[in-house]
Design a protein around this nucleic acid. Structure first.
Length: 419
RNA sequence: GGAGCGGUGGGUGAGUGGCUAAAACCACAUCCUUGCUAAGGAUGCGUAGGGGUAACUCUACCGAGGGUUCGAAUCCCUCCCGCUCCGCCA
């Protein structure tokens, strides 16, 4: 959500820039609804003011006849008010719906484009792994080492199911331990948050109403499974007035994440790339409302993820999301793509977004009378990270080479295929 | 799931139909005092929206939403949240 007045004053920008992001915004409807609402509000407030005056006079009036006249005066006003208040409520409902559906503006430095092909590459760390032997894809590697079961998992969970088996799980857990240590060293608080949340939490972070199709919902209780811990971490601090010493607030969480992947039917159905349930370590920052602060912190959380990938010795590149690739509430986004040999390409593993006050406004987070800014980035998400991890580190003899930074997090005794 | 109690400003907490946006205390801010001195005093201090160049003014808000009433923090209904006891249970 954005400042209604700000939208009114920048109708043209919202029309053109919404289009660039792939959302639609109708300035004429917005302006009309805004103005209708305002004039109705003014009429209602005037009547209420009159009513308050008369009511007070009733309490002062001693003469019963006079009193009766006054009371009937108020009743007349109330009759008029009644229908106006109904209209006001209606138009307010319409207006707030419109307001919730206005996308955030992209930052000025966001490149214009439609698809990921239009995302400029910002930097590349190490070049794609070169194999001088025929390498296997992660699905074959998994089978060889017996660390993931797709078939049985799918039979109990439906499509896109998977189950990590002993060393698959141990590897994943080690990566998350390394990840959390890295963030703790960088002054992040760790929060173990709920992942089953109320509607308000989903709305507050901007995943509802527009993202409803991609989220799992328990209708009976109107509870939702989060698609990212960003929802829980942000909502955790709703209705908060922050002081100088609180900000910037750096928090992270490792949680399961759930995505219906509606609209991705038949896409990436094989392997660990696109699944309904996964594990993610998410970084969230809430900061004072300044563009420069936001930009700086976005660099920081991007750097954290890069540090982890470097520790894991995985080649990656950073791209900036073009306008068409920006989410509804996002102002500026960088994706990290990690080299996935089997795809002969980089694949998205991280998403680093700045929202400015878009989320804080919905969640009512304030700092010195203004709405805070918020940012988030993946630190690592599994099992997707296992694709580059397994594929890039495979050796000619079908063993897996463990990067030295990860070794302290693994048990002393390795299976024969790990080294 | 059953029974009971409760939700008031940054905090504690008073307030059961009309000068109550809401006492008091604490915290906070500015100023004064400096022989009651690790103290004393004065003043200020909620949020959102509307009107006004401004001083200022109007409206709404006492968990949320409805209702009763000329008038609701106060009465009624529904919901949400919390606490206590009981039941069930990992």
């Amino acid at each position: 959500m954005l400042d209604p007045k700000f939208i009114l004053e920048n109708l043209e920008a919202f029309e053109t820039k919404s289009k660039l992001k792939g959302f639609s915004f109708d300035p004429i409807t917005y302006k009309k609804t805004y103005e209708d609402r305002l004039s109705l509000l003014q009429r209602v407030e005037k009547l209420r003011s009159q009513r308050n005056d008369y009511s007070f006079k009733v309490s002062q009036e001693k003469d019963p006849t006079q009193k009766k006249t006054l009371i009937s005066e108020v009743q007349t006003i109330n009759q008029e008010l009644k229908s106006l208040e109904v209209s006001l409520r209606d138009i307010e409902e319409v207006f707030s719906k419109i307001l919730l559906s206005v996308p955030n503006l992209p930052s000025d430095d966001t490149p214009i484009g439609k698809t990921e092909a239009d995302n400029p590459i910002i930097k590349t760390w190490r070049s794609p792994t070169q194999f001088d032997f025929p390498f296997l894809n992660h699905i074959d590697l998994i089978q060889k080492w017996d660390i993931v079961d797709f078939q049985r998992a799918t039979s109990i969970s439906g499509s896109r199911g998977y189950a990590l088996k002993t060393w698959g799980f141990i590897l994943e857990r080690a990566i998350f331990s390394l990840a959390l240590d890295l963030l703790r060293q960088r002054n992040f608080q760790i929060l173990h948050v709920p992942i089953l949340v109320k509607r308000e939490a989903m709305e507050g972070t901007g995943y509802l109403p527009l993202g409803a199709d991609d989220a799992y919902q328990f209708e009976k209780d109107d509870l939702w499974l989060v698609g990212t811990a960003e929802v829980s971490l942000m909502a955790f601090y709703q209705n908060t007035q922050f002081t100088e010493t609180d900000l910037p607030l750096r928090v992270c969480a490792v949680t399961p994440c759930f995505r219906r992947e509606a609209g991705a039917h038949g896409k990436d159905t094989k392997g660990l790339y696109r699944v309904h349930q996964f594990q993610k370590c998410e970084q969230v920052i809430i900061c004072p409302p300044h563009k420069e602060t936001s930009d700086k912190l976005q660099e920081e959380i991007l750097g954290n993820s890069e540090a982890l990938l470097q520790a894991l010795e995985l080649p990656y590149r950073v791209v900036q999301a073009c306008t068409g690739e920006l989410g509804f509430g996002q102002v500026r986004k960088f994706d990290i793509e990690t080299w996935m040999p089997s795809r002969e390409n980089y694949g998205e593993t991280h998403s680093c977004s700045a929202f400015y006050d878009f989320q804080a406004r919905r969640l009512k987070m304030k700092f010195q009378g203004e709405y805070c800014y918020s940012l988030n980035n993946t630190l690592v998400a599994s099992p997707r990270i296992l694709i580059p991890f397994l594929e890039n580190h495979q050796q000619q003899d079908h063993t897996l080479k463990i990067p030295s930074a990860l070794k302290p997090y693994l048990p002393q005794e390795y299976p024969s295929w790990m080294k």
